[in-house]
Nucleic acid binder design. Structure first.
Lengths: 331, 331
DNA sequence: TTGTATGCGTTATCAC
DNA sequence: GTGATAACGCATACAA
């Protein structure tokens, strides 16, 4: 692998001059510039990024931590992050944590070891305490998930409000027995807020609660179907379901159809996130659409500010959302 | 940010000794080890990864390039890659190319600049010629997509064979008018092989071909639905569809249902990849399941061999697959 | 068992 | 315009 020194040798100039040519950082005569470029070409020289980063004490790299790339919901967020990052000559690298704390800590070493200039957490598993510590020492931001006291910057939506809107759709349609189907990941704020909205909406009207606590955190179609089956067996009076994701809603719908129910005539179902699942399911699912791209780009913009000025105060932002009305709740 | 030197100063030892403690690379007396660890603790010292990488001329980083993380199909491949990588103290970083050559080239700089020790391409957009060049100079491997002459190592399945199997399901069920619905990404090998299997299966039986060439490369539900609509309007005799992904199959199914067709009684549809879409769709979709985890881990294992021994010859591997029979083709 | 010194590849500050 | 050289943070061969 050729180095800048070998280029300099071949072009009969100093390494400083080669560096100047590469970075256009100072005047170089046309003649020597030509010689340097020829040498670079002939040696097939590629500057070593590590040397450059070490010297500049900046890597122009941003780490994005998420549960797993298999959730389509995250895609638009990442696109938003990338858009802004690339505009500012930053690269973003994505790492899967699978909700595993060890793995997350492992990848966080890239931040602590200065391999990346900052990190964005999407659906994090790190504790509040650790987040606060990280916030003090490194540029970080959260998207979607967050902690109430804003111990670190976040960009999310008001899940309580959105969920209340959803519940009102079901309540306004006259439903009195509404089930709650979820993944069981009760530690994350979005799940908490959705549940809180479910509970409070019903309690205000003195209506009963129907939900089951999964023993494991699972995101799947079959788990939701099983939850719906259990609830319907125990409480046949249930005529509607509020669920925390589109995938879960699809599972519920499948169980209802198996039981010969018509949707939305006999039963209604709501999802969350407006992923492709909500379109592919038959009937299509009423869901909440976040402006995910916006959340991602806002988070990245904040991070850039934080990187260039360590004294930037953490920002906390709630973005827009909208209910997408589809057949699963349309009478 | 504290450096190894400040730790050494505080612990009253040399930087060499601090390094030894950190890496357990040589005997250090319990006494000094204690002092060093205390200093590390007190300064909250984190070794700088760049310094270490530059010195060791190895980053223990693998780049994974893919179209976009929003395709669930890729998830299992990545898990396979990560599994093997982590076993060998490698980290994997994922970058989205969105099928954009510029973006792919941009991220490839991480390989050329020695920021990563190797790269894995999932659904690449780089040309054969560029791949051959890269193969000569850096450790790389391809998963799923590949080039026929094995100019670089690849780990995939025999798409032609799998697609022929699928076509035979439709043909054996007595269908004589079978449509082909695809994304239009004709440059990638998997698409070519699927199409070749479609054409040859029908030509052998002297049956007609029905397909349309999308003007744009699109992966979506609605595009597939539109293609099915167009084909069915023009050729109402079509009773079956072979499509190149589960998502597309879901779109076709939606169009068929809109037209009042029963599936599989009036029409049959096949998908590809066995993603969640194939389960969520009603009816569930018959599809091809690749052993994606296996492909990912095999690719990573090869890459590790290549990294430790540059003279390793490129490997070309076709893995297992199986047809998952579901309602969309079951009579 | 520990310390000294060198080099990894680059950029930037000085000179000239 | 260009060159010499220090510095970025670390690991390691060699001394002691």
């Amino acid at each position: 692998m050729p180095t800048i020194e070998q280029v300099a040798l071949l072009a009969k100039v100093s390494v400083a001059t080669v560096s100047r040519v590469i970075n256009n950082s100072a005047y170089v005569s046309d003649d020597t510039r030509q010689r340097v470029n020829d040498a670079i070409e002939r040696l097939n020289y590629q500057p070593n990024a590590l040397g450059k980063m070490l010297r500049k004490e900046s890597t122009q790299l941003i780490l994005v931590l998420l549960h797993s790339v298999d959730n389509p919901f995250f895609s638009k967020i990442i696109q938003g992050i990338e858009e802004v990052a690339h505009q500012h000559q930053y690269n973003v690298i994505i790492c899967n944590t699978y909700g595993d704390l060890d793995r997350e800590q492992h990848y966080l070493n890239m931040l602590k070891n200065h391999l990346v200039d900052g990190a964005i957490f999407i659906s994090n598993t790190t504790s509040v305490k650790d987040m606060e510590w990280l916030e003090k020492h490194y540029p970080i931001a959260q998207v979607v998930e967050y902690y109430h006291d804003c111990s670190s910057a976040y960009f999310s939506i008001d899940f309580y409000k959105a969920s209340t809107d959803m519940m009102n759709i079901l309540l306004d349609a006259g439903h009195k027995h509404i089930g709650f189907v979820h993944t069981g990941s009760s530690s994350i704020i979005s799940a908490q807020e959705k549940f809180r909205a479910y509970v409070e909406s019903l309690q205000q009207k003195q209506l009963p609660l129907y939900s089951v606590y999964p023993t494991e955190v699972l995101f799947g179609f079959s788990e939701a179907k099983a939850q719906a089956e259990y609830l319907l067996n125990k409480h046949p009076e249930i005529t509607a379901f509020f669920s925390t994701s589109d995938m879960l809603a699809a599972g519920i719908i499948d169980e209802l159809l198996v039981r010969g129910k018509s949707i939305p005539e006999d039963a209604m179902v709501t999802g969350f996130d407006n992923t492709d699942y909500s379109i592919i399911s038959t009937p299509m699912i009423t869901t909440v659409e976040l402006n995910s791209f916006d959340l991602g780009s806002k988070a990245m913009e904040y991070l850039l500010r934080k990187i260039s000025d360590k004294k930037t105060e953490p920002e906390c932002y709630f973005g827009d959302y909208r209910i997408v009305h589809r057949t699963s709740t349309k009478k």
